[in-house]
């Protein structure tokens, strides 16, 4: 059978493989020179602000849109260039949740899910019923009357009802209430323990940080950074929060180290990869001179790292211009 034969001709460790992926649009936006590898069984977070190219990347790698150049393989198969059989075999093992899922009008949730499940050819009903129950989705409701959150649930059930080897989720928790979000992440943990790979983009960086093994940061269509959860913890970067006395702000060594201007209340917050010795020296000098009212130095969260990454790049661009 196709799947078994293909696995011998590809690197089975990689669930997703992007090489110099380029997707250009007439308007100019897109993604450029994207290199990315996602290991089988990994939970991978894809982070970036609106318009960074997350959805464009996902669509190009899933063969929904034609890439301008480069390579993209999903479960070892180039979905744009593979034969029909190879593509079908690969897609039978993929589940995808779009960022803004729609539904067929004038059909019930049950009908839409049964239709999509039938495309997989196998038995999906029991799993579908279980997922609907756990996500609190009423199968009897008309699909076009669902709220955004319920449409998202429908898309999640459609993506998971055939127990895929790879789940690609574009903003999966967007529109879901906190209780359902928790159920979603429970389900994703179960998928992961089953051996499935999970690739998801999100704006909620705290959930990415909590859930993912690795993260990729995308900015303006290019990969800014890829790091693991361990790297995040072992990062030499530190988050510094300091509050200064009114007279101490101007001469502060810590302010000079941050390269930032304190706010009106004399507070400054920044992420730095300067040696700890330099940070402590600056803190010590400010304490000695009575400039510092309060200071905290700790590990930055992923959100802070990401914000710092973007703000630093933006500052570099302003300086360069």
């Amino acid at each position: 059978m196709g799947i078994a034969m293909q696995s011998t001709t590809r690197d089975a460790r990689l669930a997703i493989e992007l090489r110099a992926l380029d997707k250009r649009f007439a308007g100019g936006r897109g993604v450029r020179a994207l290199d990315l590898e996602v290991q089988t069984g990994e939970v991978f977070g894809f982070i970036g602000p609106n318009g960074a190219g997350k959805t464009t990347t996902i669509r190009a790698m899933l063969g929904l849109s034609r890439r301008s150049s480069g390579e993209a393989k999903v479960l070892g198969v180039d979905l744009e260039r593979a034969s029909a059989d190879e593509r079908r075999d690969a897609l039978a093992r993929v589940g995808y949740v779009p960022s803004e899922p729609g539904v067929y009008e004038r059909q019930s949730v049950r009908d839409v899910l049964a239709f999509l499940g039938a495309l997989h050819g196998g038995e999906t009903r029991a799993r579908r019923d279980e997922l609907c129950e756990r996500l609190d989705l009423d199968p009897a409701r008309r699909a076009d009357e669902l709220s955004l959150g319920n449409k998202k649930k429908l898309a999640l059930v459609a993506a998971m009802q055939h127990r895929p080897a790879l789940l690609v989720l574009d903003e999966p928790s967007n529109g879901l209430d906190p209780l359902v979000q928790r159920t979603l992440f429970d389900l994703l943990r179960e998928e992961r323990s089953r051996g499935a790979t999970v690739f998801f983009s999100s704006h909620v960086l705290s959930e990415v940080e909590r859930f993912c093994d690795r993260f990729a940061l995308l900015r303006d269509g290019a990969l800014a950074r890829v790091l693991t959860a361990d790297e995040l913890l072992r990062s030499k970067q530190r988050r510094v929060r300091a509050e200064f006395t009114p007279s101490g702000v101007e001469a502060s060594a810590l302010v000079a180290l941050s390269g930032r201007r304190p706010d009106r209340d004399g507070r400054v917050e920044f992420v730095t990869d300067a040696p700890m010795r330099a940070v402590f020296d600056a803190v010590a000098e400010d304490v000695r001179e009575g400039r510092l009212a309060d200071v905290t130095v700790d590990h930055p969260s992923l959100e802070e790292l990401v914000l710092d990454e973007y703000q630093s790049t933006a500052r570099r661009e302003v300086k360069a211009s």
């Binding site: 669509r59 899933l62 929904l64 029909a84 593509r87 079908r88 075999d89 690969a90 897609l91 039978a92 993929v94 995808y96 779009p98 803004e100 899922p101 729609g102 539904v103 067929y104 009008e105 999509l116 495309l119 997989h120 050819g121 076009d144 898309a155 459609a158 690609v168």
Partner: peptide, 20 residues
């Protein structure tokens, strides 16, 4: 245009079915 208008194209064409 049904799938595009009802925003189900992405969902449908990431299932194992050929566009043709």
């Amino acid at each position: 245009t049904r799938e595009a208008n009802q925003r189900v194209s992405e969902m449908l064409y990431t299932h194992p079915i050929e566009r043709s």
